[in-house]
Amino acid sequence: MRFSLFIITVFLFSCNKQDVHPVEIIGHAGNGLKNPSSIYHANSLEAVELALGTAGVLGVEIDLQLSADNELWLLHDRKLETETTGSGCISEATFETLKKVRFKTVNKERLVRLSDLNFGLYSGKTLYLDIRHYNGCTEALIDQSRIIDALHPIIEAWGTVHFIVTTNHKPWLNGFAAQGWTVYSDIESMSEFQELQHYNLNFHGIMIRNSAAGKDDVTRIQSENKKVILFDIRAPKPIRQALKKHPEGILVDDIKAALIEKSS
């Protein structure tokens, strides 16, 4: 009798554990993109390290653009003048110009290269590398081999950091996956997911807007053995809704609001 009760109890606790899906909280562009309560500017070294150092945060997403001299720089905007002291586009500038550029904020954070990050400190953390596939000024497509050459030494050198390459340019998915990298496709709708499968593209997960994917959509993607990251989540209510869909992660601008919701 006692043994039966023990078995039932173990079974019930096992069921509970399965229901609690671990959702990873990921900082959008470091500590949040256009987040009024953020201390540091999006995609700055300070923002990345503040987010990664926050208890409960396992990863951050950063936006990367390739310079004329084949270095990957952290910046979201197409034009430098939008939020920095520089002008023009990263695609048409070199290290000599970009090293002097700072964000127009109180802290005047420096524009940094991917290689400037202190990867030695990020052991066990995940960096989602959102790669811009076109020239910000001319919109001309960038040669993927240049991106691969710039990323390769960093990903190879820092094995303790989990790198996930993300792109919304579908023709690049197979090229990144062929390097043995974890690749996520950034999509706008579920019809794009069907398209990815139709063309038999090689990817490990998708990033999709929270409003574009319901719980059933998330479950369907996961049933295809793909990970799901939901993004464009700002206020506590959408955070709560996103967590209930049980994706692998949510990309958020207010990290503390997300951690509060997760631990509630």
């Binding site: 201390i39 540091y40 390290e49 150092g53 926050t54 109180v106 802290n107 400190l121 990020y122 953390k125």
Partner: peptide
């Protein structure tokens, strides 16, 4: 001045971040 102070899990020590 606004200063946020908390323990960083990557630096393994308290850090202070300041802004306006």
């Amino acid at each position: 001045g606004l200063w946020e102070r908390g323990r960083s899990t990557i630096y393994q020590q308290p850090v202070t971040s300041g802004t306006l």
